[in-house]
């Protein structure tokens, strides 16, 4: 089965949230800054729990933060 390509708008949402830093986002959702970088670059797909944490932080539905590229 082909691997799904998942994109996200974390970087854009950070800037919309008063230019939140990567470290601030990392602290809010309990991850390291390195993981935020990997997420933004699409090199790492988060767990469902982390994905929901990020979406909740930005007060957006999950599908507005993460999208599957078809």
């Amino acid at each position: 089965m082909d691997k799904l390509l998942i994109q996200n708008r974390i970087r854009q949402l950070r800037f919309e949230a008063n230019e939140m830093t990567q470290q601030a986002l990392a602290d809010h959702v309990g991850i390291t800054r390195q993981t935020v970088i990997a997420l933004e670059q699409g090199k790492y797909y988060p767990s469902l729990e982390l994905a929901f944490r990020i979406a909740l932080l930005f007060a957006k539905p999950l599908e507005q933060v993460f999208q599957v590229e078809v």
Binding site: G30, I31, T32, Q34, T35, Y44, P46, L50
Partner: peptide
């Protein structure tokens, strides 16, 4: 020290 997260 920084926490160990799911990626680590």
């Amino acid at each position: 020290t920084p926490p160990i997260d799911e990626l680590d």
